[in-house]
Design a protein around this nucleic acid. Structure first.
Lengths: 221, 221
DNA sequence: GTCTATAGCTGGATAGAC
DNA sequence: GTCTATCCAGCTATAGAC
């Protein structure tokens, strides 16, 4: 953890990510990981104790790195449509780099492996915290603010990315259709977002009435 | 497939579903499946040749059964808000029954196992075909019709369910927040859906202008 | 820190008795 | 059709040489 070694520990973590990408969570083993890392299988246990702990460390490190890469981009976003543009770019880049795939596989494994669950939750959290910040900023002053819950939406976006990633893996064309349909719907958000003052007030009136109808006073959380 | 046997073949398929639910795709083996089914391990290979083929058959059968259970419910839906209500109920029931979990695990496995991929895609297709039909029906005559692509949206909904399911497995509260945020946003769709004729025409004008700006003429399929 | 070797276990798959 | 027994590959984890 100190000096000149860009070495074994890191190579193992990179190897873990690569192995998950290639073989899926069902195919990772100390041997496949070590193979991807180009090191001896026994070193997994020397450095991390168990395979699970290596996966946990690798997921955490890889995700933190990716999120940090995008921090400046997130900070520069000033409107909903800029956020949609960044989301599209981020989705495409992360998909190609295989990082979404790794996250999805970790999540799948975490469903039945309690030792992976906190790591997967933490990785998702790194993403959702960033998204939430941006949403909070760009929604301020929008007529959608009354209607949009930034923490919840950030989590929905993250879940959506994961679901789309898994879909893409079995039906690329279908997933593309899904994404295109969502972007088309986003036009609606966009239009509402820069309504004139009169239309805006009219919409807010309608929303208030409708919301009261759906969420009883003193309702949810 | 013919007579009085509610037997081994079916028990194995039920056992496969149960094993995926309990141990995840990384934990299914001929032995765990046979254990869940209460039959001998060798019977997996006698009846299905390989474990993968059993998983494929089980996924197909279980999904078809679930979709059939909902067909009448889907057919009875007459509006977007009825569809949202049914979606909420369906999500909750399938989550509790563990069928979404199985689908998610199959999808995760299918990412790196080409023999599972067609089965996972087909299972998703069973759901999206139903959803698409309903969407097509309830969107007819809505001002959203111009903006909403039923096949794409159906696929987006299915992907969203899968993503949320995986999220729930590692952070139940976060996933609940995500769902609540989406339902809150759905109010917007609802409001737009029953606009008066004047507001409707105004919105359509705005949408047309905005769409032209975003999707160049002769653009995407 | 890294390697070889190996113990001990679980996995897919088959042979052959019943 | 179903069971027992078994082969062999691959797995985690450790011991011990270097």
């Amino acid at each position: 953890m100190n000096s000149a070694s860009i070495s074994t520990r890191q190579r193992l973590m990179d190897g873990a990510v690569e192995a998950i990408r290639r073989y899926g969570i069902a195919g990772v083993s100390a041997r496949t990981v070590a193979g991807c890392a180009g090191v001896n299988q026994a070193l997994v246990f020397y450095h991390f104790g168990t395979l699970d702990e290596l996966l946990v460390a690798a997921c955490q490190a890889a995700t933190a790195e990716r999120v940090a890469d995008y921090r400046d981009r997130f900070a520069a976003v000033r409107s909903l449509s800029e956020l949609l543009d960044l989301g599209r770019e981020l989705h495409e880049q992360e998909r190609q780099a295989g990082n979404l795939a790794v996250l999805a596989q970790m999540l799948a494994g975490a469903q039945t492996d309690g030792r992976l669950a906190p790591a997967a939750a933490a990785a998702l959290r790194l993403w959702t915290d960033e998204i939430e910040l941006v949403l909070r900023r760009v929604l301020a002053g929008s007529p959608l603010a009354a209607l949009a819950d930034p923490p919840g939406l950030a989590r929905a976006v993250a879940a959506g990315f994961v679901g789309l990633e898994l879909y893409e893996g079995v039906d690329r064309a279908g997933a593309d259709d899904a994404l295109a349909a969502l972007e088309q719907l986003a036009v609606l958000v966009d239009v509402v977002d820069d309504l004139g003052p009169v239309a805006r007030r009219a919409l807010q009136g309608r929303l208030a009435r409708r919301s009261r109808g759906r969420v009883p006073p003193g309702g949810r959380s």
